[in-house]
Design a protein around this nucleic acid. Structure first.
Length: 230
DNA sequence: GACCAGGCACATC
DNA sequence: GATGTGCATGGT
């Protein structure tokens, strides 16, 4: 029987075994998460930017506001002023910086792709990734979320939960760099898009419910995740 | 009132 | 290159 308490190590074989196994256990425990069912690709991108370091519930409030005011389309968002945009997305927090970031993305979308998401979809994803990272306000997690959840590209999304969970499982150090952790998943998983999509969502679910920044389950050094879930 | 949330850019050393 | 800080709302 797999028991993370005894296997804790940074070894390669541990990773090979653990990365797919954690996925199986999580899917078994929580079931499919049906993540990011945005009505349009543009909506998912906006959500990806608004959710930076922010609770999804707050993001949804902002999305409703944008939709109500017809700003949730490339043309609508291009037309609205940055000041007005920041007011509409207020519930999502960091509204001034996020308004700027949304405008930066819009500028990129119109300059390079004539405001056409279909044209963007045709770009090879490795190229698109670099272009997205070049937009001020889009970092690795947001870029990869867009590639995976909007354009169905085989890119694993690493976030704070991923880092916390897998460092506590002993597979990586606490301050592991983004590409190193990402590589851990791409190297140890065979299937891609559908699984990457689901795995990331499941890690968020696990993180929210059982893996706080400061463990509350003091009997167990990994908080609750080892004894109750995995 | 403290903690937490599906990051990122920028300043400083 | 590593580390610290500002950005801000809303739920528990």
């Amino acid at each position: 029987m797999f028991n993370i308490k005894h296997l804790k190590s940074f070894s390669k074989s541990y990773s090979q075994k653990t990365v797919p196994l954690v996925y199986e256990r999580l899917l078994q425990k929580f079931g499919p998460q049906h993540w990011w069912p945005g009505e349009t690709r543009f909506e998912v991108i906006v959500g990806a930017i608004l959710t930076q370091n922010t609770n999804w519930g707050n993001v949804q409030k902002a999305i409703v506001q944008l939709k109500k005011n017809r700003v949730l389309t490339p043309l609508g968002m291009k037309a609205v002023s940055e000041r007005r945009l920041s007011t509409l997305i207020k519930p999502s927090g960091y509204f001034n910086v996020k308004a700027k970031r949304l405008k930066n993305f819009i500028q990129f979308l119109f300059k390079d792709y004539d405001g056409d998401m279909n044209k963007m979809a045709k770009q090879p994803w490795t190229v698109l990734r670099l272009e997205l990272l070049n937009v001020n306000g889009i970092g690795p997690e947001t870029a990869d979320s867009i590639l995976l959840y909007v354009f169905d590209k085989p890119v694993f999304v690493v976030d704070a939960y991923t880092k916390r969970i897998f460092s506590r499982l002993g597979l990586v150090k606490k301050d592991v760099e983004y590409p190193v952790l990402q590589e851990l998943f791409t190297r140890n998983l065979t299937s891609a898009v559908a699984m990457f999509n689901e795995y990331h969502a499941l890690l968020v679910r696990l993180g929210k419910e059982h893996c706080r920044p400061r463990p509350r389950c003091f009997r167990c050094p990994l908080d609750q995740i080892c004894c109750k879930i995995l």
